[in-house]
Simulated scan of single mutants.
Amino acid sequence: MSTQNIHLERNAFGQLLLTDADGKGHAITPVRAFPIAAPTENIGLINAEGAEVAWVARLSDLAPEPRKLLEEEMANREFMPVIQRINSVSSFATPSTWDLETDRGPTTMVLKGEEDIRRLTSPALLIADSRGIHFLIRDRYALDSHSKKMLDRFL
């Protein structure tokens, strides 16, 4: 299905529906192939059975309305705050409580172990807290010096 022909709407239950070329409706879930490296590219539209119904190479290829619906749906599904500053850590031994500033506001997280800090494509890091929330650091070198100093103790 061409991205030009994608028709999306919400049903009465708030589900995202895709109408295919044959006029058949599919309740879909958008799934990013590369959520961190290329969040606006390569998005599969998956039906309730787990089959891919359509593929979006780039969100920018879509008309404004379906693009807006997909962006809203993915924002509701994916919760990955981006760490902007590390204010303090309770201890340099784990578990430790981190006081953070994120793109979603101030918060705290508990780092259970250093193995919960995963190195992604340099210079990005993904940190899982004790509640299962994943925090992203897009560029650890772009953090302020205080945050880098705190983070370096765990790397």
Results as ranks from 00 to 15, higher is better:
T107K: 00
L17V: 15
E49C: 05
D20N: 15
I6S: 11
E49S: 15
S60L: 04
D139L: 04
P66M: 02
I43V: 15
K149H: 00
H7L: 12
P64H: 08
F135E: 08
V56G: 06
I28V: 15
I6P: 08
W55H: 14
I46C: 08
A27G: 08
N42Y: 13
T94N: 10
A128E: 11
A128R: 14
T121A: 09
N47K: 13
G50V: 11
L125C: 03
S60A: 15
D144Y: 03
A63S: 10
H7N: 11
T102L: 04
L18T: 09
D129P: 05
G14M: 08
A21K: 11
N42F: 14
L100S: 08
S91Q: 00
L126M: 14
L136K: 10
A48E: 15
D129R: 02
A124P: 07
R140V: 02
L59M: 12
S122Y: 14
Y141E: 15
P95M: 03
S96Y: 00
V31A: 10
F135L: 09
P106W: 00
I137W: 06
T40N: 15
E115T: 10
L125H: 03
G113F: 02
V53M: 14
F79L: 04
N76Q: 02
G50Q: 14
D22I: 05
V82R: 15
K112C: 04
W98C: 00
H146C: 01
F92I: 12
R131H: 05
L143N: 03
S96E: 04
D116W: 10
G50E: 12
G113K: 09
E9W: 06
I133L: 06
G44Y: 13
A37M: 10
D144P: 04
S122Q: 09
R140Y: 11
